[in-house]
Design a protein around this nucleic acid. Structure first.
Length: 343
DNA sequence: AACACAAGCAACCGCATTTGT
DNA sequence: GACAAATGCGGTTGCTTGTGT
């Protein structure tokens, strides 16, 4: 049996959010009924989103326009994800919050299918959990905090290192399209180590993925991974404004941010906050972003394989996208393509 | 089984911003 | 430009559900 409502949630309400106070009516509050949902969905199907106050007038639905909009946005908007947050999304929320603060709507733009409300709820739950555990209120708080972007400008960017050397891409051979989905290799984990000749920057030894890759010649096999690569994260070279909707929060940027917060707060703080060790976090990011991204090998890769090979065999070499013969979008994926094992 | 508490979540409120007249 | 209405956002509330005793 439902407990009595403490508040008069099912009583009168003034049409809020700028609606006329003179049009005070009997409007329903509280949980929506299936019948109300049907009316709402039917309205949107016929008239599209927006004009929420009109909905109330023409359908007779006794809800404020604001309430209708909220119900639609949080429950019926197309492509909404219903499942709980993935570990990847949890990491993303933490990093985005560190960058943006309580800008839930902006954070939600980086998580397709998620609403600002559920992200906010998730965050508040996280905070409450920490409060109960006697930990700092904000996961990345209690440290000398500065925004990541300004922090980034004051330091050398972290580097990703992939090792050891192996075959050159020129040894690639054509093969048929594999039926398997990308998978993380079993025989090489992720580890953290100091990057040689890079001061105090942290670097990761990345796992590699098996993934079908296609170029203009068809699907092909680059041979066993990985190559020796020590290079700057592409996101450091081509970082975008975080709030720019047009730029997705790619794995390179995400890894970059993870490195930054580790650098700022220490590995222990990050691992405690996310209840996962850093190698696992990197694993999550790579799995998620690699699996959700169409990796296509660019003609430039194949045609410039000799220069790529020279670069890959020289861990101290600094190479630009121009030298390597690929465009920026391709370079964005280079570190993750390099250790890929192709069928 | 009954109760208490915690956790998750949906929905509301107030304010800010945008849009229309 | 001024005003009102509509929309969007973030903080908060309180209901529902799950779990432990």
């Amino acid at each position: 049996m439902r407990p009595p409502l403490k508040k008069e949630r099912a009583s009168t309400a003034v049409a809020g959010g700028g609606a006329s106070a003179t049009t005070q009516q009997l409007l329903k509050r509280g949980p929506w009924t299936p019948a109300e949902d049907t009316i709402l969905k039917e309205y949107v199907r016929k008239h599209g989103e927006g004009n929420w106050n009109v909905l109330q007038k023409i359908s007779g639905l006794q809800r404020t326009g604001k309430s209708c909009r909220l119900r639609w946005v949080n429950n019926f908007r197309p492509n909404l994800k219903k499942e709980s947050f993935s570990p990847y999304e949890e990491v993303l929320i933490l990093l985005l919050h560190d960058e943006l603060g309580n800008k839930w709507a902006q954070i939600a733009k980086h998580l397709p299918g998620r609403t600002d409300n559920e992200i906010k709820n998730y965050w508040n739950t996280l905070i409450n959990r920490r409060k109960r555990a006697g930990l700092p209120m904000c996961p990345l708080e209690n440290q000398q905090h500065m925004p990541l972007m300004s922090h980034r400008q004051e330091q050398n960017a972290p580097y990703i290192a992939i090792s050891p050397p192996a075959l050159k891409p020129s040894q690639a051979t054509l093969s048929s399209f594999p039926s398997t989905m990308p998978q993380l290799s079993e025989n090489q984990g992720v580890s953290i180590r100091q990057c040689p000749n890079r001061g105090n920057n942290i670097s990761f030894q990345l796992p590699y993925f098996t993934y079908p890759v296609q170029n203009c010649l068809g699907y092909f096999d680059l041979g066993p991974p990985p190559y020796a690569v020590t290079k700057e994260l592409p996101s450091s070279q081509f970082s975008s404004n975080f709030g720019d909707e047009k730029m997705p929060h790619g794995s390179s940027r995400l890894l970059d941010d993870l490195l930054q917060v580790i650098d700022l707060y220490g590995i222990e703080v990050i691992e405690e906050t996310l209840k996962a060790d850093v190698p696992t976090l990197v694993d999550m990011i790579l799995r998620e972003t690699t699996a959700s991204t169409s990796l296509t090998v660019l003609p430039g890769w194949y045609n410039h394989s000799s220069s790529v090979g020279e670069f890959l065999n020289d861990p101290l070499a600094v190479i630009t996208d121009k030298e390597i013969g690929i465009d920026v979008q391709q370079l964005e994926w280079m570190p993750y393509m390099a250790p890929v094992e192709f069928y």
